[in-house]
Nucleic acid binder design. Structure first.
Lengths: 338, 338
DNA sequence: CAGGCCATGTACATCGATGTAAAAACGGGA
DNA sequence: TCCCGTTTTTACATCGATGTACATGGCCTG
């Protein structure tokens, strides 16, 4: 122990924690001893005593999803500003993995969770999420936990209106979900966006064809490509495709290219998320851009609140719902400027 | 404490750890008490006692880099199989962040590190990495720590030969680094790949023009796009571009498109990493595909070894260097099949 | 029926950091 | 010089889990 070098034991702790009533001489002595022995605080001991670790987990379905990667970057920056370390964990949209994470990995080395659930329902969160502060990124329809998301219905309506405004009449939604439809895909998000899509069509006086809502297993590039390929192979001739995320939109661009359809001349394409790849794709991608920094900032803020409330033994805060801004970025895939 | 419900205290511990000499009746009683009270193991206590946390950190420069996302997925799977939890952390290629991580975040809640260093040198690792088992992903030239990487020189040579074999004579390397060049970029990797590039040109009897090695600040899409744009704007007319990763290759495709150059007819493009986006880009991307699963498997294996050795108080193992397989995947961007 | 062995269960100390309370050291003022 | 109020420092208990050593009790064997 550093005691050998300096003096006591608590004093070392005091120095490390910048306690004010420590004489300069003692402080210096301890500091030196620390350097000499290469002493390092034992997180276990501190955690045991303090009951907090300063670690929060960011639970994501997919790490190699640009959108999540970008959000994660913001979350990490925001958390760092507050002295928190972020542990990123991947669930592969697997329900079991998500439940385990929600359970704090069966133990409690994290102070709280930021989670982007795919397979879970709000009930799961409400039921099992008892012991850990949790904030959800994205929608989950029902109440029961803190949420941070853009106004997805509105955003989808705007995107759809943009297409309609360009004279497109036959619009397909890739990744959509109908009430009672199969495949959960991105539970909440898919549903809400599909609703916005439907509403916009109605407002525009266009027919809503359930067959033009293409469900997918996952929101990945190959899923988008395959869904569109099937649709076109069936003989349909849409003049616009609304993809519920950019990954699928990129897959869609590929499929259209393979079938010799020009974008945007023959078919216009819109995505969601504004990932970097969409800015460099050929053609570049029109997309709904969520304010990712805001998502991260608000989410961390809500979580920190919740952690603090818990630390002080207060009753859990009521579920809160925060809406962050978004905007439609028009690029080449719908005829935007080059 | 669960003691109230069951009986003793150590017995609870015994039940939790599946100690064999516990009567069924006691075991059942304890189990029930656990459920009833919603008891959960306190990682802090266990860590304090055992000295290990079962957590390893995966330190990456960028989370929204498909390549790292894909590798991370494999690492997580491999670690899970061994009962380890992976904490992913992002350094943004910042030296200070990397040093902090290397230091175990100033404490010791991780058992070891898997790290993909960009800004660090081997000396840093050798010097500061004393207290924590570390395995590096990717190259760092000098010795001093465990490494896992493909044979980058060979891979680059193959990629270059592929271009030469298709009759290309004027080849540019994007992201390359000359000895003594500025910008560290991806320290080791850039250097080693540049070497392979140069060797291949020599073997083919082509001139090596240092101006055809385009340094970049980072290996990101915009950097690649900008570097190529500058090169073309300067009046050069290459017939092939070798990008040291896929992100930059995607940016390159975009720039070529904007300048009206056809790929592969006018210019062939090759990337590194085989990220998913490259399979769906227009045109699809020829690339050097590392066996990512192997990278993950070997890296975790090396790290587990090192952690075990340390736990048993053995002297640290000597640095080991593992080479994993790769292959060249030929796609449309160099005239491959559609 | 006693002795002995094995399966179970318990008491206690311990890991390291830190809050608490109190002791020790210091500085002034009377 | 003595007493009192601060400033520093220390002793001790504590967070929870678990290794160690030992106590308990049941059962078998002679």
């Amino acid at each position: 122990m550093a005691r050998l070098a300096g003096v006591s034991e608590k004093t070392v702790s005091n120095v490390i924690n910048d306690y004010e009533h420590v004489s300069d001489r003692t402080r210096a002595a301890v500091r030196q001893a620390i350097d000499e022995l290469g002493y390092r605080v034992n997180l276990a001991g501190r955690h045991l005593r303090r009951g907090r670790t300063g670690i929060i987990a960011l639970i994501l379905p997919e790490l190699d999803f640009s959108y999540f990667g970008e959000v994660a970057t913001h979350v990490i920056a925001e958390a760092e500003r507050r002295g928190l370390t972020v542990l990123v964990h991947q669930t592969l949209a697997d329900r079991q993995h998500e439940l385990t994470a929600l359970d704090g990995f069966g133990s409690d080395f994290v102070d709280g969770l930021l989670m982007s659930p795919l397979a879970l329902t709000a009930d799961d969160v409400a039921e099992r999420g008892g012991h850990l502060p949790v904030v959800l990124l994205g929608e989950l329809i029902q109440e029961g936990a803190d949420h941070v998301a853009i106004d997805n219905v509105l955003a989808t309506r705007e995107a759809t209106e943009h297409l309609v405004g360009m004279g497109r009449r036959s619009i397909v939604a890739v990744g959509g979900k109908e009430a009672g439809g199969p495949e959960p895909a991105t539970t909440g998000t898919a549903q809400v966006r599909t609703r916005g899509f439907r509403e916009a069509l109605q407002t525009a006086g266009l027919p809503y064809d359930p067959a033009a809502v293409l469900p997918v297993r996952q929101f990945r590039t190959p899923d988008g490509a395959a869904a569109v390929e099937r649709y076109l192979a069936a003989g349909h001739k849409p003049d616009a495709i609304l993809c519920l995320n950019d990954q699928m939109a990129l897959g869609t661009l590929r499929t259209l290219h393979e079938r010799g359809l020009r974008v945007p001349e023959d078919v216009a394409v819109v995505g969601f998320d504004d990932v970097e790849a969409g800015r460099f794709s050929v053609p570049s991608l029109t997309t709904v851009a969520p304010d990712k920094a805001a998502v991260a900032r608000v989410a961390v803020e809500l979580l920190v609140d919740r952690i603090a409330a818990r630390a002080e033994g207060l009753p859990p805060l009521p579920p809160r719902n925060r809406v962050v801004p978004h905007r439609l970025v028009v690029r080449e895939s719908t005829g935007g400027p080059r």
